[in-house]
Amino acid sequence: MKIAVGSFGVESATLKGNDKDQIEVTGDGIDAAKLTRLLRRKIGYAVLESLSTAAAAGGGGDKPKENERT
């Protein structure tokens, strides 16, 4: 969680999923590829599930969802 929140452009990060094994990151100007690489380096496993723009999401910014499992 600290990794995602500390990234440039991130406004919020919340845990999602049945097992709380997914993190939804919301913000503006987030580099999704860079965030995914950083999570993979620190955690070992991360998958970018979806990416939305502000127009498609109805506000906010880019919303990459990271699936992190340790």
Rank of each mutant, 00 (worst) to 15 (best):
A13C: 11
K20R: 13
T26I: 14
K65V: 14
A56G: 11
E68L: 14
K42A: 04
I3N: 01
I30N: 02
V25I: 05
E68H: 12
K63M: 04
A32K: 09
M1A: 13
E24L: 10
P64E: 06
D21N: 10
L39P: 00
Y45K: 15
L35F: 07
G60R: 02
L38Y: 06
E66T: 10
V25N: 01
L15N: 10
G29M: 02
T36I: 09
D19I: 09
R40C: 03
F8A: 15
G17P: 03
I23H: 00
S12N: 13
T36E: 03
E68R: 10
F8P: 15
A56I: 14
E66H: 08
P64C: 02
K34V: 05
A55H: 07
G6I: 13
K65W: 10
N67K: 12
L35P: 02
R40G: 04
G29L: 05
P64V: 01
L35N: 00
G58H: 04
T70Y: 11
N18E: 06
V47M: 11
A55Y: 09
T53G: 15
D31F: 02
P64I: 01
E24H: 06
V25W: 00
D19S: 07
D31T: 02
E11C: 09
G61R: 07
S7I: 11
G61P: 03
G44A: 02
G29W: 03
G29V: 09
I30E: 08
K16P: 05
I23A: 00
T26Y: 04
E68M: 12
L39T: 02
V5F: 09
F8I: 14
S50Q: 07
P64L: 00
S7K: 14
K34F: 06
I43V: 15
A56L: 13
M1K: 13
S52F: 10
K34L: 08
G17C: 09
S52H: 14
G6R: 06
D19Q: 04
P64T: 05
G29F: 01
Q22E: 12
A32E: 11
S7E: 14
N18T: 12
D31E: 06
E24M: 10
K20N: 13
R41A: 02
K20I: 13
F8D: 14
K2E: 14
I30G: 02
T36M: 06
Q22Y: 07
I3M: 01
E24N: 06
G61N: 09
Y45A: 12
L35G: 00
D21L: 10
F8E: 15
E49W: 08
A13Y: 07
Q22M: 07
V47C: 06
K2Q: 15
G60A: 03
L35Y: 05
D28I: 13
L48G: 13
R41S: 03
S7V: 13
A55R: 10
A55Q: 08
L15R: 06
A32W: 07
T53D: 10
K20Q: 11
G44Y: 02
A57C: 07
V5M: 12
Q22C: 05
